[in-house]
Simulated assay, not measured.
Amino acid sequence: MPEITPSAGTVEYEDTGGGGPVVVLLHGLVHDASVWRKAVAELRTDHRLLTPTLPCGSHRRPMTRPPTPDLVNELVAEFLKRLDLRDVTPVESDCGRARTVAARHPERLARLVLISCEAFDDYPPGLPGKMISVACRVSGGIPPMVRTLGLEPLRRLPVGLGALTKRPVPDEIVDRRLRPLRTDPAIRRDFRHHGTHVRRTELLEAAQGLRHFDRPALVVRATEDRMMPREHGRRLAELLPRGRLVEIGDTRTLIAEDRPERLASLLRWFVAEG
Score class of each variant (00 low, 15 high):
81 K>Q: 13
134 V>H: 01
122 D>F: 01
141 G>T: 01
84 D>W: 06
174 V>F: 01
124 P>F: 01
82 R>L: 14
144 P>K: 08
193 H>Y: 05
185 P>Q: 02
88 V>G: 06
170 P>W: 06
87 D>I: 00
134 V>M: 07
180 P>E: 14
193 H>A: 03
158 P>I: 07
183 T>E: 15
88 V>Y: 05
144 P>M: 05
82 R>V: 15
131 M>K: 11
95 C>F: 12
76 V>H: 06
174 V>M: 09
121 D>Q: 06
104 R>V: 15
70 D>N: 09
178 L>R: 01
162 G>E: 06
192 R>S: 00
78 E>G: 06
110 A>C: 05
91 V>N: 03
187 I>H: 09
103 A>F: 03
140 G>K: 04
108 R>H: 11
196 T>P: 00
187 I>M: 05
78 E>D: 05
190 D>E: 04
145 M>S: 14
171 D>M: 05
121 D>L: 00
128 P>Q: 08
192 R>Y: 02
74 E>R: 09
171 D>F: 03
102 A>E: 04
86 R>W: 12
104 R>A: 15
120 F>L: 07
83 L>C: 09
79 F>C: 08
93 S>Q: 15
111 R>P: 04
177 R>M: 13
178 L>P: 00
85 L>T: 03
175 D>Q: 05
82 R>Q: 14
121 D>T: 06
122 D>P: 00
191 F>N: 03
148 T>M: 15
109 L>N: 07
154 L>M: 09
168 P>K: 02
104 R>S: 15
129 G>A: 05
165 T>F: 13
88 V>I: 02
111 R>G: 04
148 T>S: 15
183 T>K: 14
95 C>K: 13
196 T>M: 06
97 R>K: 15
105 H>I: 08
106 P>Q: 09
150 G>Y: 14
168 P>A: 13
90 P>K: 07
139 S>K: 08
